[in-house]
Amino acid sequence: MDKTINITLKVWRQKGPKEKGHFETYNLQNISTNMSFLEMLDTLNEQLVAKHEEPVVFDHDCREGICGMCSLYINGHPHGRDSHTTTCQLHMRRFKDGETITIEPWRSAGFPVVRDLMVDRSAYDKIMQAGGYTSIRCGAAQDANALPIPKPDADEAMDAASCIGCGACAAACKNGSAMLFVSAKVSQLALLPQGRVEAARRAKAMVAKMDELGFGNCTNTGACEAECPKGVSIANIARLNREYLKAKLKD
């Protein structure tokens, strides 16, 4: 039952944001197919440490697909080939014996490499700080049921809100565009009455920040949606465009 495979890893190693990176090849023997992908990397790192070499640096935390910390570009796909899966939910049974697996960091000007496979995604935080909120003060809220919200709107807002901020959208986009991320937040709040109040301001501020940070322009390829581990729809991008253009035309 506990099948094992042998694999070859081609892992991107890079000392720092300004230094030149390269691929390093590692062979791993007897990898249990029940392992998760990150546990396989743990195994690699244990072996490297045993040889007194520096382990491969990669981001990871919750390992249950929700924190958005893991960020590997595996064989040409962010979070690997499977749809609706984060890297930490990917298992080695999805790979064949003898397979070569290429692991790269997110490659986007907005996400500079910090070390090896770890990138700096603080740009997404900055976009959020530009307007991804409702300006309410704690203690000032009215009763939660004072504002009925149609279930379909609430459900659609929830689907947009399920974004985990991992950055796979910008990593998958051939234009390095962060539109899916931005649109998910703008959509969530635009769909709800409590977010409508500042909808115009929010759309303008978040798009301006996104542009300023050097993310690319959306050309509607849909790669972001296809690679999004939470399946956030590009219909949100249409809504962002609408909100933004409406806001700008009003000015």
């Binding site: 490659r107 000007a109 500079p112 490499v113 234009n175 565009s177 050097g214 690319g216």
Partner: peptide, 8 residues
């Protein structure tokens, strides 16, 4: 867009 993609 090519610039946004980064150098690598």
């Amino acid at each position: 867009n090519r610039k946004a993609r980064g150098n690598d």
